[in-house]
Amino acid sequence: MKDRAISNIRRGDRHITTVAVIVVIQAIAAAFFLADAVVDISTGELSLHIFTEMLIAFALLAGIGLGAWQTAQMIEQARHDADALAVARGAASQLMDLRFRQWGLTDAEAEVALFSLKGFEVAEIARLRNVAEGTVRAQLTSIYAKSGVSSRHALLSLFFEDLIEIEHH
């Protein structure tokens, strides 16, 4: 789950880097073009050629400005998302701790419940905790009984119910 979240962030970073590289190339192109155009414009008379150069210069600068502004927005959004994700993670783990204590889960059961909520199967949990699959199944049954649900989906939905607020308009 976490790997997927991080790979999403990496993909976002790559996208931002690509746009940033294009903005840098545009800026370099603009510097060389402007250096030429300024000489033409300052020495030449107002001709179609100079008018065209001014138009191109304007388009280039506007493009850079807009591209840079959009890049800045993307970077700010990515930072905001990363912060929000961290806050949500903290909140989710706090809520789990609270519920596990309320239900009176043992430490072992709390760990199994956490693995189960993170999407691990019985066999995987057994391997991770170095116990028999039967033990994990027994622990899950106990967890469901203490929390008053009958399946993993129902257990998961107990948390989502608390974390997701549906707004009524």
């Binding site: 940033a20 903005v23 840098v24 840079a68 890049t71 970077i75 990363a82």
Partner: peptide, 16 residues
């Protein structure tokens, strides 16, 4: 702890 730390320098700062 959250592994995702805020990046201090963005690509434009680094490239320039």
């Amino acid at each position: 702890a959250p592994e995702v730390q805020t990046r201090r320098w963005d690509p434009i700062v680094k490239i320039t």
